[in-house]
């Protein structure tokens, strides 16, 4: 549980722009466990490289494609 400044807004992975580095702050939804198994863990750094019906992200060295519904459950903070 990270403490959060009130002014920082949490973005879902869907809302992040392309080729932007972000860090996962939390997972929120029924598929959390599965997402974590695939490498989408808290504090993990990732970059979204493709949008569309399914997203493609680079996370801890691997390229993963996940659906928009899943991406909705991933909350991130931008880096830099």
């Amino acid at each position: 549980m990270t403490t959060r400044q009130p002014s920082q807004r949490q973005l879902t992975l869907n809302e992040v722009s392309l080729n932007c580095d972000v860090r996962i702050s939390s997972l929120n939804g029924p598929a959390c466990d599965r997402l974590r198994d695939l490498g989408f863990c808290e504090q993990m750094q990732l970059r979204k490289i493709s949008n569309g019906r399914n997203l493609v992200c680079t996370v801890c060295g691997a390229k993963m494609a996940i659906s928009r519904e899943l991406a909705e459950q991933v909350l991130v903070d931008p880096i830099r």
Partner: peptide, 11 residues
């Protein structure tokens, strides 16, 4: 149970 699309794209 709803299943979602997830797939690894290996190098």
């Amino acid at each position: 149970i709803v299943r979602h699309f997830m797939l690894e794209l290996p190098p």
